[in-house]
Design a protein around this nucleic acid. Structure first.
Lengths: 169, 169
DNA sequence: GTCTATAGTGGGATAGAC
DNA sequence: GTCTATCCCACTATAGAC
């Protein structure tokens, strides 16, 4: 199993604090210094993880709109994307956080990947401004939920519903 | 100058990585160990910083709606809050990030502070669900801007405008 | 309240031999 | 590609004398 796959597994299992060059090496059955023959360093590793996240979450977004009927409106598309976005993030919380927290290492990412992942939303929203507003809403809902910032009794389904409805008009 | 004020100054000047027990002590003219006679530890310190952030940003929110005319509608209130929210965060980026990233240490915060800070938004939005959606949008826009996640050419004013308009209907 | 000294932990990264 | 041996860094925290 190569380094990135192992790192992914550790990240999802132990969280970001558990992901160290040492822990990756240990899981691979080698010593930490040997890892540097496989990977440049930690920055490179994180960029590879982010790229993987973009590829997989982007796929989930493309799939979400692909299954809609041709006559589905903006409301249906944004709702489908919102649900898929939230579901993906809740299923991969640590990876989501890694990929969306802090600056994007754009120089280290494959050209076009970021745009491809955003494509379904831009199409569904109808304009760049609306897409950015919708993304901000979705990311805000998601990260606040992951961080446990909403009160325990909060009805998050209702908040998503309310926001998606408003933003699709 | 006591510890919290010094910590605040270092945080805003050098960012979170520059904020260590050593740096705080140095700035106060004492050694790191002596700091523990003033403050329990780093968790306590961060909770105090977060409380300060809630107090000051909450004040900005209360002020933003207080200056509205009595006949102002929901749209005007949400717009004023949105602008004040963004302005406050951009003026205190490191503190904003500290106070909104990760779980809230609710046990360490003064009772009622969180609710008080949220009050203007809940009132302006008209319901808890709408308030949560609006907060998610505002936080999403803000943190994505702070993290440089939007493309450089993005028109963030337009995105704010678009989102606030949609969410105030 | 302050100091010196130190414990204990963890991290990323490199040199050079095999 | 792998190893051993290190280096460097940084941090929180405590003990005990003054």
């Amino acid at each position: 199993m190569e380094a990135v796959a192992v790192a992914l597994q550790i990240l999802e299992r132990d969280g970001p604090d558990g992901l160290t060059m040492r822990s990756i090496a240990a899981e691979m059955g080698i010593r930490a210094p040997s890892l540097y023959k496989h990977i440049e360093g930690k920055e490179e590793l994180e960029a590879l993880l982010i790229a993987d996240s973009l590829r997989r979450s982007g796929k989930a977004m493309h799939d979400a709109v692909a299954s809609l009927s041709a006559r589905a409106g903006r409301r249906a598309a944004l709702t489908a994307l919102g649900h898929a976005y939230r579901a993906w993030a809740l299923a991969h919380p640590h990876l989501y956080r890694l990929a969306t927290g802090g600056p994007l290492p754009r120089e280290r990412l494959p050209t076009g990947l970021e745009a491809w992942a955003a494509e379904p939303l831009v199409r569904a929203a109808g304009s760049q401004e609306r897409a950015r507003a919708a993304w901000a809403f979705a990311h805000g809902m998601t990260i606040l939920e992951l961080d446990g910032r909403f009160p325990p009794e909060a009805d998050l389904n209702a908040a998503w519903e309310s926001g998606l409805q408003a933003l699709s008009r």
